[in-house]
Amino acid sequence: MDSSSVKGLVDPAIFDQLQRKIDEDAVVQEGLREIVDRLEKQSKSTKAALSKTHAIPSKSLASVIQASEASIRQQLPALSKLVQVASQHPYYRWNGIWSRQIQDLVFDIVYCGWLGGFANQPGQSEGRKEIGKLLTIDEVADIMQGKMPANLKDRDEFHLTIEEYLHALLSLIEELSRLARNSVTLGDYERPQQISRFIKDLHSAFLLLNLKNDALRKRSDGIKYKMKEVEDVVYDLTLRNLLPKSP
């Protein structure tokens, strides 16, 4: 008598049901990954547009900023699709699938904003055209999607999380420290100072946070090195008397 004729431990219905649930999850994950892939593909053209900022003097940046802003806006339909599909599930069930791409998008937005982009936001009385501004988490969420909330805590909805925003700021610091050197190469001796002040301000803001041993903590530990890199650039300029005279 073989064991297959015996009714035993495993009720096949149990595993049929488990498999069904696993399959349902797999379908959801696949659908989300597809959208996220699309978002990632489109973000590459934004990255290409933004990379020109390292090679073009700040005076002639306007067209680059315009192109970058347009490119970012082209990512928004894919983002809307993501929000629409992801909203059918608890937010934190699948957020690992898109978190990195959202961080990248937020970085594109804050970097573009720092360079003077996204000057006129709907709902804002006056534009913030200035170079060196930091778009707040709410401003970024507005740009990403008209109604997207930032930092939710009372409803289970799609939103921009604090962590994603902070990761994007850390990327911004890294990008700006690179921009500081490249500005000098392009003959712009003023921007490194501006970047240095900005990173110092962000650094002191990050010091307010009690970060635990996580990815944010590890990355934010790196700010001081970036800060020093930029300070070294400013030092080099000062030493050689290349800084524009303070008024």
């Binding site: 930092n151 803001a205 307010l208 946070l209």
Partner: peptide, 9 residues
């Protein structure tokens, strides 16, 4: 940026 970061904290 202090006030925004204080909310974050």
């Amino acid at each position: 940026f202090q006030s925004m970061f204080e909310t974050f904290r």
